[in-house]
Computed example of a mutant assay.
Amino acid sequence: MSLAKQAVQLAYNPGITPSDGGLPGLAVLKEVMGSINLFAIILVVGALAVSAGVWAWGHHSGGHQAEANGKKGVLVAAGAALLLGAANGVVEFFSALGTQVH
């Protein structure tokens, strides 16, 4: 096979695009993923509350290690909340970016 034919084979577009309604149970899967996202957000709220409590306790008791761990926990929980809230937008952004690759 010549080099030109190999290059054409590498650039071949299979023509596959995401479509709604292709498989049964798509609506159920969307509901399940939404519920998992909700539970994760609820867990993050709990983690944020616990971390803030550890931070406050460490600050008022002079426990520098507990205070530092509480700060880290608050930052991690805030980051997780940001990612969970932005999950749809992040996936949509990179999916749209991926469709521009030729």
Rank of each mutant, 00 (worst) to 15 (best):
L82R: 07
L82Q: 05
E31I: 00
G34P: 01
K72I: 12
G62S: 09
N13L: 01
H59Q: 08
Q65L: 13
G15M: 01
L26S: 12
V28K: 09
A47T: 06
A47S: 13
A49I: 11
A56F: 12
A87V: 02
V74K: 12
G73D: 06
M33E: 09
L84N: 08
A56R: 07
V45D: 11
V44Q: 04
S51A: 15
G62C: 10
Q65W: 06
L23E: 08
A47E: 13
L83H: 01
A96P: 01
G15R: 04
G73H: 05
T17V: 06
A87Y: 07
H59L: 14
L29S: 08
F93P: 01
P18R: 08
L48Y: 11
G62A: 09
A11I: 02
G73T: 02
L84I: 07
G58H: 07
G79S: 13
K72W: 10
L23M: 11
V76M: 10
Q6L: 05
E31R: 02
L83F: 12
V32R: 03
K30F: 04
V45M: 14
K72Q: 13
V50T: 15
A77Y: 09
V74M: 15
E31D: 09
G62L: 09
V28S: 03
E92L: 10
L10Y: 01
F93W: 12
V90L: 14
A11R: 02
V74C: 14
G85D: 05
V54M: 14
L84E: 01
L26H: 06
G70M: 07
D20T: 11
S35C: 00
V44D: 00
G15I: 00
A96T: 09
I36N: 04
A56T: 05
H64E: 11
A11L: 12
E92T: 14
F94H: 08
F94M: 08
Y12C: 00
S51I: 09
F93I: 07
L84K: 07
A96R: 15
D20W: 03
A66N: 13
V74R: 14
G70I: 08
I36Y: 04
S61I: 09
K5A: 14
G70T: 10
G58F: 08
Q6M: 05
A40T: 00
G25F: 09
G63S: 15
H59C: 08
V74A: 13
G63V: 03
V91M: 10
E31A: 08
I16C: 02
V28Q: 10
P18W: 11
W57Q: 10
G53I: 12
